[in-house]
């Protein structure tokens, strides 16, 4: 009983310290605060997204901190709790899960914070605005190029990203909305590799144990494309199998230039991040009317036009 009382007092003290600490941060006249909550920092694409958003917000005069959700909605939820009690005014948010992240957005908005999603969508209209990569249109372009490069026939593998992410399915469905029109293009395996390079390499290695006679691999992002390429190279199949990615990462742009990767779809993380920060700034300055969904173009990059592009964007 004594032990329980001590524990209760300790928890109360901890809570009190937490709240006083947070209140102390909101001094009058101090900078307003922006939290950048990103699904993962274990992928260079998201590092660019988060750092660009943070940099833009800092330049606009805000105190900014980046939070890594480690692809885990529970961790993401903790970050939102911290942002709410920590006196943040806006969250530039790259969600972990289209459904699983909704409650975090609702909680933050109900607590008076503005939430601007970047790249990934949440299945809710409660976010202040959603700045989204047009994944579907990007993979439709990629799908057409894929069909053309394979002369409308062949066997292929698809590596999916995180299954809880809308982007995974937008990309997959965009690709299949084209490729499935061609009955001689046969998908022999479809597996998730969580947008992760190492996992993609392992998954591809195991697929190659059964299907050595494939002609192409379509990957839901560039990290997986590089992982798949590594596995193909280790199996001596890199010349016969065309690899298609999605993102526009620096190593894949380089790989398209030297012929290792067939094509990718260029997303513009810097454009999305800057737009989110600028919209947050407008919110902080009193604007309340925002377009609910703002798509950002995704462009096909192949050997014929790769010289227009650089990592995560266009050459200036």
């Amino acid at each position: 009983m004594i032990c329980n009382n001590k524990l209760f007092i300790f928890l109360l003290l901890l809570l009190a310290v937490n709240f006083t600490g947070c209140e102390g941060k909101q001094e009058e006249g101090s900078k307003k605060k922006v939290a950048v909550v990103v699904s993962t920092l274990n992928n260079p694409w998201f590092v660019v997204l988060a750092e660009t958003a943070a940099e833009e917000a800092r330049q606009l005069g805000y105190e900014v901190n980046i939070f890594d959700s480690q692809n885990n909605t529970a961790v993401e939820s903790e970050h939102f709790e911290n942002a709410i009690v920590g006196g943040y005014d806006a969250i530039l948010f790259n969600p972990t899960d289209a459904e699983g992240s909704v409650s975090n957005v609702v909680k933050a908005v109900d607590s008076g914070l503005a939430v601007f999603t970047m790249d990934r969508e949440v299945n809710s209209n409660r976010a202040t605005s959603q700045i989204l990569s047009d994944n579907y249109a990007g993979t439709v372009s990629l799908g057409k190029y894929f069909v053309d490069q394979l002369n409308k026939k062949g066997k292929y593998v698809e590596l999916l990203g995180l299954v809880g992410d809308n982007n995974t399915w937008n990309r997959s469905e965009g690709f299949h909305s084209v490729v499935d029109y061609y009955p001689d293009l046969v998908m022999v395996a479809q597996q998730s590799a969580d947008f992760d390079r190492n996992k993609a390499m392992q998954v591809m290695e195991s697929i190659l144990q059964v299907h050595k006679d494939i002609d192409a691999v379509f990957c839901g992002n560039d990290a997986m494309a590089m992982g798949a390429y590594q596995a193909l190279k280790a199996a001596g199949l890199e010349q016969q199998v065309k690899v298609f990615g999605f993102d526009g990462a620096d190593n894949v742009i380089q790989a398209i230039e030297d012929g290792r990767i067939a094509a990718t779809a260029m997303q513009f993380p810097k454009v999305m991040a800057k737009t989110a920060a600028i919209l947050a700034d407008k919110y902080m300055n009193g604007e309340r009317e925002f377009i609910q969904k703002l798509p950002v173009d995704v462009e096909l990059v192949h050997p014929g036009n790769v010289d227009h592009y650089t990592a995560y964007g266009k050459k200036k």
């Binding site: 249109a137 799908g143 057409k144 937008n170 609910q292």
Partner: peptide, 27 residues
């Protein structure tokens, strides 16, 4: 042959993305 993509939907200017709760419905 390649009748794909958003050209007709978007060139018309008569369908508004904001009407759709999920982008995939719009796609």
């Amino acid at each position: 042959e390649y009748i794909f993509g958003n050209a007709v939907r978007d060139a018309s200017g008569k369908i508004d993305l904001q009407e759709f709760e999920q982008t995939m419905d719009f796609n």
